[in-house]
Design a protein around this nucleic acid. Structure first.
Length: 203
DNA sequence: TGCCCGATTAACT
DNA sequence: GTTAATCGGGCAA
């Protein structure tokens, strides 16, 4: 990777990335839905986002619900940055911070359709089936080698690249693995994708 | 300081 | 369907 960018074009970083103006300054559920179909790469390795979940500062299930702490501080910082946390003492999970009139919003990236660096991801995951590489928040962080070191990183700067792309359609459902606000339909996925962590209920 | 529990995963029965 | 692995955050004592 590493092309010679960073010229003084007068464009913001987000404009160079092709992000729509104000994209991140919305409710996390809107951002989460619109991120379906986009491509996220870390050092050139990654794929299309096919599953996301939204978390909001007033949402009991969100890490940001009780206000800023050392762990979730990034959620209260600028949008389009990465919030990475340890899950069950074993896995890493990554979120994209967004803004919704108040700080504390984020989108959990739950699954990717692998498109770049399949060989590297297979080595990291010790799995060859493409559907086993990024079909879960812990799995995709392992496949992309995302760890606490990336907490607070900007999405428009190396090693990250996040670019818009089309989705076949977006399906919605309740979030997974939480015990509070279990009925809020803030899980989003690409319709018909075989790379989700779990299937969406067909409506 | 100690205890409980979690935005998970893989390997079981 | 059930469960162990594993550890840091949050809260009670």
């Amino acid at each position: 990777m590493s092309s010679g960018r960073s010229e003084h074009s007068g464009l913001s970083n987000s404009a160079r990335q092709g992000w729509p103006a104000g994209f991140w300054d919305r409710h996390p559920a809107e951002v989460a839905a619109d991120l379906i179909g986009w491509t996220v790469l870390v050092n050139g390795v990654g794929g299309r986002i096919v599953e996301t979940e939204a978390y909001h500062h007033e949402d009991p299930a969100s890490h940001s619900h009780s206000g800023p702490t050392p762990r979730n501080a990034v959620m209260f910082g600028p949008p389009a940055h990465l919030y990475v946390y340890r899950s069950y003492g074993i896995h890493w999970c990554m979120n994209f911070v967004c803004w919704s009139g108040a700080p504390g919003g984020a989108v959990l990236v739950r699954a990717l359709e692998p498109t770049r660096g399949l060989d590297v991801m297979s080595e990291r995951r010790l799995a060859s089936d493409p559907r086993a590489l990024c079909s879960g928040p812990g799995k995709l962080c392992q496949a992309l080698a995302v760890t606490r070191d990336h907490n607070g990183a900007a999405l428009d700067r190396a090693p990250f690249a996040l670019t818009p792309g089309p989705a076949a359609g977006v399906v919605v459902g309740p979030r997974i693995g939480i015990t509070k606000a279990v009925d809020v339909p803030w899980r989003f996925g690409e319709a018909g994708s075989r790379f989700a962590s779990r299937p969406f209920r067909v409506s």
